[in-house]
Simulated scan of single mutants.
Amino acid sequence: MKKSLQKNILWSIFACFVAIIFLAPLYIAFTNSFKTPKGIFTNVIGIPSKDVFTLGNYVQAFKDLEFFHSFMNSFLITTSSTLLIVIFASMAAWMLVRSKTKLSKFLFFLFAIAMLIPFQAVMLPLINLMGKLHLLNPVGIVLMYLGFGSSLSIIMYHGFIKNIPVELEEAATIDGCNKLQIFWLIVFPLLKPITVTISILNAMWIWNDFLLPQLVINKPGWQTLPLKMFYFFGEYSKQWNLALAGLVLAMIPIIIFYLFAQKHIVKGITQGSIK
């Protein structure tokens, strides 16, 4: 009993240590977003005192980011890409599970292999191809996100769909449902836990992505929040106070989205891993 108590105490201490490591960057970003530049360079870790505390960073960052316009760009690109990934990945995974052929196994293996290819390896040829197709615009970047996000999503859906009894689909077929009706009326509603998980993972990735938007839509009027925040960092000076305030503003929407849907993440991944 004593050894068990000591073990629990050690694990609790270790968990607290890990939590501090993960939360430290958030603490530094949040506290320094309320400081003047002098306050940041004087004491990075400390809580802002009265002489360095200011709310002006958020007001200035809100204006410089053109927050509403940049927010809508990020929102439209993120929601469109996530929605397309969910639709196409779920349908593809369903067909791969139900089609017991060598081709379906090969395609699933191909999607798994695609996850190992880094974006940097195909970055320049992809941008060159999309430029020739005149798709270096918001529509083009949504299609690119669909391509890059589908592999992991299909694999996650694939594991989850295996748990759905095929008898439900056979009964729907007897009742006269076609393939689309079977999927949208019978199968897709059962995929809610994993769909929420996939939506969160893809939304967080796309919302925070910088490199692909930098290459594809780095033009006035199309820029997302991560792109707009980049301009707080000049060649010779960095406006850390404004950059951190802008970072906090950009994190708020995705944090709210995560908090509302977090209970489905572990449930979706756990159920999808059980065959």
Rank of each mutant, 00 (worst) to 15 (best):
T31M: 06
K100R: 08
L65M: 14
I47Q: 12
A114C: 04
F34S: 02
L116I: 15
F41K: 02
A29Y: 05
W94A: 09
F62K: 03
D64W: 09
S49E: 13
G46I: 14
K102H: 09
V59F: 12
E66L: 14
I117L: 04
A93N: 03
F53S: 04
Y58I: 05
T31K: 04
L107P: 01
D51R: 11
I113T: 12
P37Q: 10
N43Q: 12
Q120R: 14
L76F: 15
I85G: 03
L103W: 15
S99W: 15
T54G: 08
G39H: 02
K63Y: 06
I28R: 05
I85T: 06
S80E: 13
P48T: 05
K100F: 00
T31A: 05
I40A: 05
D51E: 13
M91L: 12
L83E: 13
P48H: 04
D64I: 09
W94N: 10
F17N: 11
L26I: 08
L65D: 08
N57D: 04
I21C: 08
N73H: 01
K100M: 01
L116S: 14
F119S: 09
D64C: 10
P25L: 02
T31N: 04
K38A: 15
T54L: 10
L26V: 08
T82K: 09
S33E: 00
G46K: 10
Y27N: 01
A114M: 04
K50D: 13
A24R: 05
F17W: 15
F111D: 00
I21T: 08
L23R: 13
T82N: 10
Y27R: 02
P118C: 08
N57T: 07
I20P: 07
I77R: 12
H69W: 13
F53L: 07
A92E: 06
I87F: 12
A121I: 09
F34Y: 06
S80V: 15
T82D: 09
T101M: 03
A24S: 07
F109C: 11
A121W: 08
M91Y: 13
N43G: 07
S90R: 03
A93W: 01
I47A: 14
I113H: 08
K100I: 00
A114N: 02
T42P: 09
M72I: 06
F53C: 03
D51N: 11
A89K: 01
L55R: 13
F109H: 07
A93P: 04
F108L: 04
Y58C: 04
S90Q: 05
L65F: 12
I45C: 11
P48G: 04
S49F: 13
I45T: 14
F41C: 01
T36G: 06
T31Y: 05
S49Y: 15
S49A: 15
T78W: 02
I113P: 08
N32G: 06
S99K: 13
A61K: 05
T78Q: 02
P118H: 08
F108D: 00
I117P: 00
F62E: 04
N32R: 10
L26N: 07
K38D: 13
G39A: 02
Y27V: 03
A61D: 07
G39S: 02
P37W: 12
A29W: 07
M91C: 15
F41E: 03
S81Q: 05
H69P: 12
A24E: 07
A92T: 12
G39E: 03
L26E: 05
I85F: 07
F75E: 05
F62Y: 07
W94F: 12
E66I: 13
S81M: 07
K102F: 02
